[in-house]
Design a protein around this nucleic acid. Structure first.
Lengths: 349, 349
DNA sequence: TTGTAAGCGTTATCAC
DNA sequence: GTGATAACGCTTACAA
């Protein structure tokens, strides 16, 4: 006959109040840092909290404050076709995602805010998501979208919920966003290749229907032009490993005499480097390669990749801060923030 | 003079009840699918729900049911040293993670369960996490841990919370886990290399302090022995891209005559293939390569990687199901589930 | 400065 | 089968 396991009883405000010899209200004030509490009493209450091991009940608090102390991290991906491979979230395979999560948590965790991970990858999930958001189940939203024709930024804007985007949205929006100065980054790459004396330059761009893809390409071409380099071969990639490899092949076919390449993401560079190698080009002596992101892939490349660094963790932390500010004060959407990139020199250029 | 924006008022049970001409209690019963409701009334209520656009308030519900309708997805990573690069979550960069998330959501989403993403990467965050869990802020936990000496499985077990592990824990535990049959997977690789007529075989193993690393290696060696192949070169990797490249160099140095390699993760294979290429070995004609995982990296490899497939999405979905079952019924921890692997033939072997 | 008391929107326990 | 009514644990006027 085994003893029934007693479920541990969680102390309530009432319990703490009893121990401290004060009222529920006073304990609540101490917990919430109200200034109107006698310092002596405050100490007594704090001790009572410690001895009882009290932790507020989020549901009860949420019920009255109408805040949830949680935000949604929404990953919006293009709909996968029914005939495609099981599920392969492209966003999740990108090292970028982990850096974003890390940066967000750096700010949210100390603030006691939880992060609910949500996926929007088709009409149904999008509707479910919006309904969830509209019904106040989270206090705010961080949206990471990877495709240009995503209706979600617009729909999100309509909800008037506090929200911050990772990167400038394809279509103008009043939502705040945080991104790196793409043009400046592209210029860093161009200046570096030019400084190395490379003149027969090519580039693997990102998707041209996305701002990051467009601006990096335009900025790169513009900066090269300033160096008197006009005739630049270009192949469009899709920011994936595989896409980078394919683009590199096209680029080599078009311009075999290449001596420098700017690849608009490290992940694409990771795919492109073996193609160069296999085509008999040494990197960097034959072809200098500059990537973009400074993701974990950059250091894993062979040779290690010279690349334009986006401070993704800091950017994500800033997104969290902007969001918390919006949630705290009803001052409307916050201004966007643009971070400066830096060039990280490794061995590929 | 702009009109003040009226915050949309969310309908409550009371409102629905008024519209339907019944009591709160009846509406609640309908919402929760109680059988003891007059079918006619049920219809009336359902219409009222539709016209009012009612959605239950989670906080209020949670307060009384003592359930949160959310589970934690906990990523436990080794503590990053203070002197290391900013934050680079290794788990997040692994395509494996995204597949897990996808599989979990496949089950959790229809069940209306939210997924809170939490990180445990040092003592402090671990304590905060445990306190959070113990205080009933989630109904259950899915734990993904990447290091052998992780105390979290043990600590989690002590909380007696419903929990499921991704992969067998390093130390025996009563917690349920879901994993692929590692040994069978390794055997598939060995049999395939042997069938190709390869005899001078090497392997890049996973970390030997982790079950997945150990079992894949032992299983591989054992299966090769059954084919009469005993002298197998081995280099230990760490399941990362970079680690795979380094291990491949060591392996080539030790055994230049290699004609077949089993690499215990696709990510490591991604790093190893360029090393082979650079060393002048053609894949697969000189060296046949078999990976493990069938991650998105496998298809991105050049040449595309023959690999042992783990059905990660299905495994994750099963984890979610086990967890929901534990949450639903107090029948103690569920049994673990082991999935069969399959060999996916591409071009590398 | 502190306490009292009124909700917040549900579910659950009763009578009816 | 249905409807009052009492919790659930917290914050917050308002009163003292």
């Amino acid at each position: 006959m085994t003893a029934e396991v007693e479920p541990p009883v969680r102390p309530t405000l009432e319990d703490v109040a009893a121990v401290a010899g004060v009222s529920r209200a006073t304990v609540s004030r101490v917990i919430n840092g109200a200034t109107t509490v006698d310092p002596a009493l405050r100490t007594v209450v704090e001790e009572a909290v410690a001895t009882t091991g009290y932790v507020p009940n989020r549901a009860a608090r949420s019920l009255v404050t109408r805040r949830t102390d949680s935000v949604a991290l929404v990953i919006s991906e293009r709909e996968r076709r029914p005939d495609s491979e099981p599920f392969v979230g492209r966003m999740f395979s990108d090292p970028y995602f982990g850096r974003v999560v890390g940066g967000l948590l750096e700010v949210l965790r100390p603030a006691g805010i939880q992060m609910v991970l949500m996926l929007a990858d088709d009409e149904a999930s999008r509707n479910q998501l919006l309904s969830y958001l509209r019904h106040g189940h989270v206090d705010g939203v961080v949206l990471v979208t990877s495709h240009a024709d995503d209706p979600l930024p617009g729909l999100l804007e309509d909800t008037r919920l506090p929200a911050v985007l990772a990167g400038r949205p394809p279509r103008p929006s009043s939502l705040a966003y945080v991104e790196v100065d793409q043009q400046a980054g592209a210029r860093l790459a161009a200046d570096h290749l030019a400084a190395l004396g490379r003149r027969r330059i090519g580039t693997i761009s990102g998707p041209q229907d996305r701002p990051a893809g467009q601006v990096r390409l335009a900025g790169f071409l513009e900066a090269l032009a300033a160096h008197g380099i006009e005739d630049v071969a270009c192949a469009e990639g899709d920011f994936t490993h595989l896409g980078g490899a394919a683009a590199m092949r096209r680029l080599l076919a078009e311009q075999p005499g290449l001596d420098g390449v700017f690849i608009a993401s490290d992940l694409m560079a990771l795919g492109a480097l073996p193609v160069l190698l296999r085509a008999g080009r040494d990197v960097p002596s034959d072809v200098a390669v500059v990537g973009f992101d400074d993701s974990s892939a950059a250091a894993a490349c062979d040779p290690p990749l010279t690349t334009v660094r986006q401070p993704v963790e800091e950017m994500a932390a800033e997104m969290a801060r902007l969001l918390l500010k919006q949630i705290g004060g009803p001052g409307g959407p916050s201004p966007s923030v643009v971070f400066p990139p830096t060039l990280v020199r490794r061995q590929s250029a």
